[in-house]
Design a protein around this nucleic acid. Structure first.
Lengths: 346, 346
DNA sequence: TTGAAAGCGCTAACAC
DNA sequence: GTGTTAGCGCTTTCAA
């Protein structure tokens, strides 16, 4: 690539030493240079179209002004808002995000992390947390600064920014109970995600807190539409004990449930009510519009970026957990329990 | 950040000069080093957890092994698959993507570009093309390699990877005509996007090629749900001359049309048929499932990355246009023209 | 096959 | 206020 012009070229044109150019062009050191020379240097830089080389600077200052963002899959609608929130915070502060997808594969995560570390990112924001994080454990071991987003890293004590899973699930359960539902099912995500186990536990606790509510939990193989459909298929194949209300581990699973319901000729919410989790983009446009728990994904990203830059500034980080509030968004996929709901269980 | 261990540390442990370490650890120069020393160096590097510093290497080799990806908004579901396609191609080749959002603002684009250029990206992939690209013109002027994706950069002659807008629109028109529709409307995107004008022209041409088809074009203020809804609201407010078939400039606009239709108590496709463009994620889950033109977004990203790396390898690029095939996906939002369709125009 | 030396473009200590 | 000097960690001639 081009951009040949270096700090030396500017120095020559402005008739000063390159160190002076460096001072003049840097906000923190600019006051050390006289007004006149700053102007002269500015003009020279402008004239030459000088673009400072951040790599060279970084070599000296041991900072790359880039942050590694590792996510499972950008194509999953849950993650773009997080990334956007991160960038919204980083960009005005001179930082840029290096993106890496892992697809949930440990091998891909390893190589993604390696690639980011080679580039000497100043820190990591990781949205692909799992129970068994070996690669992250190594990173943490060698002093890499990082913030987890949404899911934690198992036993690796990185700070975490997450939504309030418990209160979201509690609100969903309360909503269904209020509508008269007494047979509730939770389709949980894989247990190696901290959010899955948190939501599952919250579901069971919430059900216990309402008298007369029968609850049941099944697991989905992944946080995906297909996994949700499969799980729902199995449940709907059973002739007795069908739930009247389902709380899905996330919106993708909920979408799978919706497809399964249609395939079985069941009406939502006429026959079965459904609540999702996350309020992903366009959840309101589904058929029916999905009742779900809204998670502030953009804010989660922003907050994670804020925490990371703070950690970079101090060089240290405590394993805090920042829990952001969530809210139940009631739309068309939940309704009153059908009259004959109890036929199947008696 | 940590990772203190440098090539010198490895050299010392392996009892060789750092130049030898460099050769041993580099695939292209490895054959210059004896088998034994390579092994010894490898072991030493492993033992020390050596991670080469790409910035330092880049300073020397004038290549950063990073590609700048500039998009309007990651939160728009059209872009993540493109980015994913890019990364799928880049990652195995040792490149990483630096992401920058512009929100369609020239100012944001300027600063995004500046930030990428400071980081000495080896090239750019730009999905935020507009008619009046001043920042890109400068980049092009100073020899920056770049590939446009989806939309071109107006008069800036960068190569372009795009979907076949004309054939997609032609297929959509043919589909509606076959269903009996004779009054067609195209809600076009803003004219400063090359795709908007291409689709508009294709629409008008396609309509002319079918005898007895009346066509009309209105513009949406943006490629967004809200802009689509507004445009549809205006059309539906007219009491006469309503179209029976609408082809939206993209799926987001189509979604806005859907919402407007619902608000007006109109049935889709009972009263009006609707075709989108792009086949964005979950278009099949809308109410009704959206008939749309599928654009191979993932492939577009991959192809753009391929072209860019080729350009980087040769140091030159021709202003070629790669047009990828698209296909009409017929779902529930299109149906036979209603019987009374001609009442309103007579 | 390996070592020595130079330098990529920048900033930071130290002079003056 | 400004110049000098010395590297940051790497690759790449050029010698040996």
């Amino acid at each position: 690539m081009p951009h040949r012009t270096t700090i030396d070229d500017v120095a020559r044109l402005a008739n000063v030493h390159k160190a002076t150019v460096s001072r003049a062009l840097n906000a923190q050191t600019q006051h050390q240079v006289s007004r006149d020379t700053v102007d002269r240097i500015r003009a020279a830089a402008e004239q030459l179209g000088y673009v400072p080389n951040i790599m060279a600077r970084g070599l000296r200052t041991r900072s790359s002004m880039t942050i590694g963002v590792v996510i499972p899959d950008l194509t999953n609608p849950f993650f773009p808002p997080i990334v956007r929130g991160i960038e919204n915070f980083l960009a005005p502060r001179g930082y840029t995000a290096l993106l890496a997808n892992t697809d949930g594969h440990p091998a891909a995560e390893r190589s993604a992390l390696a690639s980011l570390l080679e580039r000497r990112v100043d820190g990591l924001i990781v949205a692909s947390g799992q129970r068994d994080e070996t690669a992250l454990a190594d990173a943490r071991e060698s002093g890499v600064l990082a913030i987890m987003v949404n899911r934690d890293a198992g036993s690796v004590p990185y700070p975490l920014v997450t939504g309030n899973d418990a209160s979201g699930i509690a609100a969903a359960v309360a909503h269904l109970v209020e509508l008269g539902h007494r047979d509730l099912l939770h389709i949980a995500g894989p247990a190696n995600f901290s959010t899955s186990t948190a939501r599952r536990a919250a579901f069971e606790a919430a059900c216990r807190s309402h008298r007369g509510v029968r609850c049941r939990v099944v697991g989905a193989a992944a946080l995906s539409v297909e996994a949700g459909r499969l799980a729902a298929d199995e449940i709907l194949a059973e002739r007795r004990g069908r739930p009247t209300g389902i709380i899905a581990g996330n919106d993708l699973i909920a979408l799978g449930v919706l497809r399964s319901l249609r395939a079985h000729g069941l009406d939502c919410p006429g026959d079965i009510s459904l609540v999702g989790f996350n309020d992903m983009a366009f959840a309101e446009d589904f058929a029916p519009p999905l009742t779900t728990v809204r998670v502030p994904t953009l804010d989660m990203g922003t907050e994670a970026a804020r925490l990371l830059l703070a950690a970079i500034a101090t060089g240290t980080q405590e394993p805090v957990t920042v829990t952001l509030p969530v809210s139940l968004i009631v739309r068309g996929s939940t309704g009153p329990v059908p009259d004959d709901a109890h036929r199947s269980v008696t």
